[in-house]
Design a protein around this nucleic acid. Sequence first.
DNA 1: GAGTAAAAGTTGTCTACGCAACCACATAGA
DNA 2: TCTATGTGGTTGCGTAGACAACTTTTACTC
Lengths: 154, 154
Amino acid sequence: MQNLTNSHLGAWRAVVTSHAAVTERVQRALAAADLPPLSWFELLWAIERSPTGRPRMSELAEWLTLSRGGITKLVDRLVEAGYLERVSCSEDRRGLQAELTATGSSMLAEMRAVYDAEVERHLRTLSPQESQLIAIALQRVAGSTCKEATAPAI
Amino acid sequence: MQNLTNSHLGAWRAVVTSHAAVTERVQRALAAADLPPLSWFELLWAIERSPTGRPRMSELAEWLTLSRGGITKLVDRLVEAGYLERVSCSEDRRGLQAELTATGSSMLAEMRAVYDAEVERHLRTLSPQESQLIAIALQRVAGSTCKEATAPAI
DNA sequence: GAGTAAAAGTTGTCTACGCAACCACATAGA
DNA sequence: TCTATGTGGTTGCGTAGACAACTTTTACTC
């Protein structure tokens, strides 16, 4: 608990609390609009954002920080709901790709409107400069974990 | 989806992804050290940070963004483990307060070392200025969610 | 002071997710 | 080519947490 640590820890606490607060609001807004839960939106959005539009299951698991079993079941539910379908992968016969259906795309758009509105509502106190700095700095933090090799135990 | 929204949305995505990444690392670090899960740490730490040292159940629920039923069961587990105990509240006979046991305090210290180290490891790329700005700006965001609780300061 | 409304916690039920075991396919090595 | 090892994905099982119903106590109103 050195001084420097405190400054980092303070930033981290702010990340945690703001994340919790805004996320909770977004979930409530979606529920109030009779829309599917946030996890469904995250999945639909991740698929849409993917370069090919047809990400593999394991990619989705990684992007959503979910276990492989978790992704299987989440995708199950959205397939069941008609929002996406599984396409078998041509290059790797073990693999499956998730693809949005038309219904899924329009549901995504509908949820996205609520999501964006709610996020904007809570982040509007941030100046453009603050937003920019936060985006850059925290992307760096997120990225630094990906490339992390086996770190020394102490 | 104006331009300004995009800047806010970018900041928000960075908050989400960095939160997910670091949280996952912290959970792994705790598990690797054979320590209880992150939710236990969050609870122990919230109790320690509380002004009185004996927060009410509903306060804990709010601070941890948990339902009341969720807090009941989480506290159940920590009581079971001997890390805290329930004290009936003198001013309000409906109420209960959570209080750390000696074992709970030392477990908190142990977990806190791992937690702090892991957070520090991932946030060390942030300059003091960046940390400061992030802390201030995101505290503002967290606070802007209408009903503001007197959450214990960092 | 009686009666109603609201709040604090607990309990039961249901769902989502992590984990580990498992199957199918793929890649490397002899 | 045949085997060994690794990877992608699903399934079964156990657990954490949300939600709603319920009990007990408090606060409000007449």
